[in-house]
Simulated scan of single mutants.
Amino acid sequence: MNIDFNKTDGLVPVVIQDEQTLEVLMLGYMNQEAYDKTVQENVVTFFSRSKQRLWTKGETSQNFLHVKSMHIDCDNDTLLIKVKADGPSCHTGSRSCFQTEYNQNFINELENIIADRYENPVEGSYVNKLRNKGLKKITQKVGEEGVEVVIAALHETNKELIDESSDLVFHLLVLLHEKGLSLQQIAKNLEERHK
């Protein structure tokens, strides 16, 4: 990458984004040395303006940010790094330094929870009960929830429509995981169709 460190007195802003949910987790700064270390170790290292030294996120908390991809902006003076975070990104213990009124990426998190239930079954988990009943039962639930969404839209309140739509999305996520597919693939397909 041809990063213009000179434009901003040796430091460039770095936006850290969760690779799967796309939630912005934090903002930091890098100089050339921090960038080089990040590329070499595949773990995000910043230049701390308050400590005046290199600082690897997670060096104390163990909540490292593992680099999945790096992107530079059109002016070559800001980086976007998509990461897999080992834990909360904010020093307060929150998942993000930016607190929004609700987690706008919860559907992506729910996809991760479903995947975790498949890999690490939890006794009594609805996902595991559904999975154990097999593909036919999962597809049946998606069909049932789809019909209930239609009925709610035609004859019930908006609250009931929201509830039924939530049930449909949840069961669709289970079905996608059962088939080895992801929301990312759906999003890419929708983007292609939009072109």
Rank of each mutant, 00 (worst) to 15 (best):
N2L: 09
K7T: 07
L11W: 07
V14K: 01
V15S: 06
G28Y: 03
Y29I: 01
Q32H: 08
D36C: 00
K37W: 00
T38Q: 07
V39C: 10
V39N: 01
N42F: 01
V43T: 14
V44K: 02
V44I: 11
T45K: 02
S48H: 08
S48N: 09
S48D: 11
S50C: 10
K51N: 09
Q52I: 00
L54C: 09
K57Q: 10
H66V: 07
V67H: 06
V67E: 01
S69E: 15
S69P: 05
I72W: 04
D75I: 05
V83F: 02
G87S: 02
P88Y: 07
S89W: 01
C97E: 04
Q99L: 15
T100H: 09
F106W: 12
N132S: 15
G134T: 10
L135R: 15
Q140W: 02
V142A: 09
E144T: 09
V149I: 10
V150I: 15
V150R: 06
L154I: 01
L154R: 13
H155M: 02
T157L: 04
L161T: 12
D167V: 06
F170T: 13
F170I: 14
H171Q: 08
L172Q: 11
H177S: 10
E178Y: 13
S182D: 05
Q185T: 06
K188V: 03
K188M: 10
L190A: 12
E191C: 00
